[in-house]
Amino acid sequence: MSEITSLLALENLRFRWPDDQRDTLTIPKLELAKGARVFLKGQSGSGKTTLLSLLAGINTPTSGRIIVLGEELNALTASKRDQFRADHIGFIFQLFNLIPYLSVIENVTLACKFSSRRNKRAIQKSGSLKAEALRLLTLLQLEDVVINKRAVAELSVGQQQRVAAARALIGAPDLIIADEPTSALDTKTREHFLKLLVQECDQSGSSILFVSHDGALEKHFDRVIYLEDINALDTQPKLGVKQ
C-alpha cells in the first residue's frame, strides 16, 4: 500500500444550504499535502465554518468531490463519515468546547470513546487514557488545573481552549481542525496557545488546518489560504472584495 501523501483534495466542490437561494461555496480545486500547517483566512460569513463541516463529513457537498486522507468523503455513508471524523479529525471550536458536566480529564478522553483507533493510540503512547490525557494537559501547562480538580466551568477561556486542544490531540488524529480557537483570547494568551498547539501537532505528526480572520497569526503557518481566493462565487456579487 502506498503511503497517502495528500491531506485533502477538493474537486469542483459546490455547496448550498437547503432553502438557500445561492451557493455558499464553489471551490474548483484545492489540494493540501499531509503534515501541512495551513492557515485558512476569510471574512466572517465567507463560508469558513461550512467548509469545515464538509471536511469533517458532517455535511455533504451539493456536488463535487472531497477527498480527505485518501478517503472520498462524499462516497461514504453518513455513519462511515462520522466514524472517519472520530478516527482522523480533532476539532477545536471557537468557544465552549467543553462538556460542563464532565471533568477536565473526562472531557479530554471523551474523544477516544468514539474511536477505537485513537483509543488504542493513546494507550500505546502512555499506557492508559488517563495518563495520556494528563501528559497532554501537562504539555499544555494545565497540570495545576487537573491537580486541583477544577470544574470545567471554573476554567478561564484560555484554559478551556487548551483543554480543547488536548482533546483534539489525544490519540494523534491525522488532522486537527481549529475554527477560530483564539478569537476570544487576548494577544498574549493567543500567541502562547498557538505556540503550544503547533508544537504539539508537530510532535504527534498531525496536520493542522487553522481558521481565523486574524492575519497576525499567519506567521505560525507554512501555508496561507484566503477563502475568498479559492471560493469562485463569480456569478454572485461579493461583499468586501479583496484588492
Binding site: 462520522d82 472520530a86 468514539f114 482533546r167
Partner: peptide, 12 residues
C-alpha cells in the same frame, strides 16, 4: 454539547 459530541464523531 450536541455539536461537540458530533465533532467528536457521535452519530445523529
Amino acid at each position: 454539547e450536541i455539536a461537540i459530541l458530533r465533532a467528536l464523531g457521535a452519530r445523529p
